[in-house]
Amino acid sequence: MFIVKYIKEVWSAIKSLLIGMRRTGYYFTHHKEIITQQYPDNRDTLNLPERFKGEVVMPHDEKNEHRCTGCTACELACPNGTIKVITKFDISPEGKKKKAIDKLVYHLELCTMCNLCVIACPSDAIVMAQTFEHSVFDRSKLTKILNNPGSKIMDGVE
């Protein structure tokens, strides 16, 4: 019946509004929930969320080895040309030629931290770091080479 439907509508509307108000009321009274970081003050104890994306880095292990095969999947995935992979050919002890990276150039000033390169990487060679204080006085410092000098590809990564 029309009138029953009408009353039900009003009642459900009020109920849903009250649910919303209960949520904000909970936050209003529970100040422990506040997530604001007072950044420059708490620089030493700064607690960044797990998925915070600061810049792209290439982790190296203690033997100065990385996992990058130089497949250029990240370069292709990047929407604005942030990554440039410069490859070379290593000669293995057996005398076979093998593709490897010479330099992985990363233009931080172009990067939008979209994470597409990390997703595209088949061998998990690059990850997002949590560093975010990137400002420098010279623009050329923002162009970074991600692989350490003299680094090699890890054994077993193809």
Partner: peptide
């Protein structure tokens, strides 16, 4: 202040 506390801000 009210808006901040309701939106989990300071």
């Amino acid at each position: 202040k009210v808006s901040a506390w309701m939106q989990i801000r300071l």
